[in-house]
Nucleic acid binder design. Structure first.
Lengths: 252, 252
DNA sequence: TGTTCAATAATCGCATACAATACCGTCACG
DNA sequence: CGTGACGGTATTGTATGCGATTATTGAACA
């Protein structure tokens, strides 16, 4: 049982880095983000049980912080919280899935309408570049491909400058990841690159109606590529280690 | 300020009370709901500081539970959480207000499109009845009027059967309460009864486009009626408070 | 009077402690 | 075999404690 790390974060850094006024990244936030990413990237599979103490141990924090993260993730629909029975990765029903996609379509249509004609050349270029990345990742068919096609939609939402819209799109998007993990077929590329290209074109042209329609069809297409697929579990410890490290946490 | 939390197990320490089988309503949940209501009903005013200790004391719980509630409320945008400085009731800027209303319009347009033509006679009747209540409350110009016109929109969202859509509409709606508390004029009637009636008619007729348009105009009208009306501030404090808060300052 | 800065008080971030509940294996009994 | 009682263990729900950070007071000084 190693408890010696309680002080390492506070005093271990010392004054090595001077002049750098870095925001004190609260560890609760790190835990939240680590779990969130782990769920979205499907390292933690839908329905998987999430015991507070093993997670905390693995992430190098106490149950308190894990619990706080669970609460927030529950609001976002990524985690289910059953009284006295603990947390588990959300396992949306087909009906919930339908709801999520429907709302997402509505939200992203809003995004499209908002962006149409307002896209700066810089932004357009950024989107193009992103799609190129997608295209490249698509070839080698890794998990990168999935992440990138999701990020495209997030980028669009960011560009509206509407923080709430961004949050909702992010949330809906996260939940879609879960849903596809359950009901999607193993290696379906969520988004077709060509559809993203068309969309950018419509936005650039300022054709709001067409952009909205394209977005709508695009997301419907994503849904259409859905089927049932089995998945196996791994040990929570192995799964979480990379996330802990990437958030600067210290696993036991 | 009076926050009350029904005490279920305050004194039930040593022995189990015989016979009485209380539903284990988690107290964390109660705290969350209590704070949420207090904020929405403006018992806790926008910008108000929320010290963990005093709130916990008021509610008869420890800081742990208060903290948990804060986290969830922060996700929903009802409280702001500044690292090492604690929580306060959210104080949306005008820009954030614009964002919220914009998203709300998009969401409720979705609601309208969804409901058009699908409204059962029972549902239609329920809506009619609700509007009648609104009308009655409107005459005596109490706080009931505001609550009822808000509930009309929630009811509509419920009728879609889409849980996520409902949650988002509720959330946007809550934040609108905050916003109107800050920028709205004292006794503006948020919603015109006639507009609600027209909307019901369009839904019943199954005219999705018209229903969506009506909803859109209706919500735009709410904004212009309540928000953009010049409001005379008579005290310097009132004028400066928003600026101070938006800069992270802490007026007395 | 106004400003600076140290000492103190208030508050937060997080870990831990303890109580309450659920889970699981065992054994008696049908 | 099946099933229900029972006890121990694992896990959750909540309170409390401690160090760290921030706010505040107040005295020295310009």
């Amino acid at each position: 049982m190693t408890l010696t790390l309680s002080k390492t974060t506070a005093s271990g850094r010392g004054k090595a880095e001077m002049g750098e006024r870095r925001t004190p990244v609260l560890r609760a936030e790190s835990v939240y983000r680590a779990l969130r990413r782990a769920i979205i990237e499907q390292a933690l599979k839908p329905g998987m049980k999430l015991p507070e103490d093993s997670i905390g141990e693995q992430l190098g924090v106490s149950r308190t912080l894990v619990r706080e993260a669970f609460g927030r993730l529950a609001v976002e629909g990524l985690v289910e919280l059953k009284p006295n029975k603990g947390a588990s990765v959300a396992y949306p029903t087909l009906e919930e899935a339908r709801d999520v996609f429907e709302v997402r379509r509505g939200l992203e249509r809003l995004v499209a309408e908002n962006l149409a004609g307002r896209l700066t050349p810089t932004q357009a270029a950024e989107l193009e570049a992103h799609v190129s990345q997608e295209e490249k990742a698509h070839e080698q068919d890794g998990p990168e491909s999935i992440r990138l096609s999701g990020e495209f939609h997030i980028k669009l939402a960011e560009m509206t400058g509407n923080a709430l819209l961004l949050r909702y799109v992010q949330e809906a998007s996260s939940r879609c990841s879960l849903i596809l993990a359950i009901y999607g077929r193993p290696h379906s590329t969520e988004c077709a690159v060509s559809e993203h290209r068309q969309l950018i074109e419509a936005l650039r042209a300022g054709d709001a109606a067409r952009a909205a329609d394209l977005m709508d069809h695009h997301l419907r297409a994503v849904v259409t590529r859905a089927l049932l697929t089995p998945r196996v579990e791994r040990d929570i410890r192995d799964v979480l280690a990379p996330y802990a490290l990437s958030e600067g946490l210290n696993p036991a």
